[in-house]
C-alpha cells in the first residue's frame, strides 16, 4: 500500500496542520510516512500545498506527480495541482468554498464536504480543517481512530491549555468529518 495525498488550500486554512496530525496518526498506526510542506513566504493567502505519503514500505522521495487523493480547499489552488490529477485520483473538496462545476475538467470520483459551512453553523469556524481531517482519515480507512484522536489532541494541547473548549470543538469536528463520509458512502 502506498497512498499519495495532496492537500491544496491557502495559507491560514490549516492545510499543514491537517498533514502533521494525519502523518503522526499514520505513523502511530504502524505506517511509513513522508510529508513535505510547500508554500511561499505568505502567512496568509497564497497557495499552500501538503504532499503526504503513507505506505507499508519506505518512502524514498517526498514529492510526487500523481496523487491518489487530492483534497482541494481553495479556488486558487485548483490550477496549481491540475498536473497532479490523473484518471485514478480521487478528489475531496469543500463545496461550501468552491462549486463542483469549477472542477468539471477533472472527470474523476469526487467527494463533496461542506466543511467550512458545517464548522461555522455547528461548531466554530476554526475547526474547518479538523472536519476535513476526519473526513480524509475515514476515507483512507486505515488510520486507527484512537491514534488520530491522540495525534490531534497532542497537536492542539497548548491551545487547549489556553481555552479548554477548543478540545470539545476539535473532537466534534473530527467526528463530524468521519460521520459525513460514512453517511455519503452508506457505511
Amino acid at each position: 500500500m502506498n497512498s499519495k495525498i495532496l492537500i491544496a488550500g491557502e495559507g491560514g486554512q490549516g492545510v499543514q496542520t491537517i498533514a502533521k496530525i494525519l502523518i503522526k496518526a499514520a505513523y502511530d498506526s504502524g505506517k511509513k510516512v513522508g510529508y513535505l510542506p510547500n508554500f511561499g513566504v505568505e502567512q496568509r493567502g497564497g497557495v499552500s500545498l501538503a504532499y503526504i505519503q503513507i505506505s507499508d514500505s519506505e518512502i524514498v522521495f517526498p514529492k510526487f506527480d500523481k496523487a491518489d487523493f487530492a483534497i482541494i480547499l481553495a479556488r486558487r489552488a485548483v490550477k496549481r495541482i491540475e498536473k497532479n490529477i490523473t484518471q485514478k485520483t480521487k478528489i475531496m473538496f469543500d463545496n461550501s468554498i468552491l462549486k463542483e462545476s469549477e472542477l468539471s475538467d477533472f472527470r474523476v470520483e469526487k467527494i463533496a464536504i461542506p466543511a467550512s459551512r458545517m464548522a461555522k453553523e455547528k461548531l466554530i469556524p476554526r475547526v474547518f480543517n479538523t472536519i476535513i481531517l476526519g473526513a480524509l482519515a475515514e476515507e483512507l480507512g486505515f488510520i486507527n481512530e484512537k491514534d488520530l484522536k491522540k495525534s490531534l489532541l497532542d497537536h492542539i494541547a497548548p491551545k487547549i491549555k489556553e481555552r479548554h473548549e477548543i478540545k470539545h470543538f476539535n473532537l466534534a469536528g473530527l467526528d463530524l468529518g468521519r460521520k459525513t463520509i460514512r453517511d455519503i458512502s452508506g457505511r
Partner: peptide, 9 residues
C-alpha cells in the same frame, strides 16, 4: 528546502 522541511522516519 525539501530536506529542511520534510517529515519522515
Amino acid at each position: 528546502g525539501y530536506l529542511s522541511k520534510m517529515t519522515g522516519e
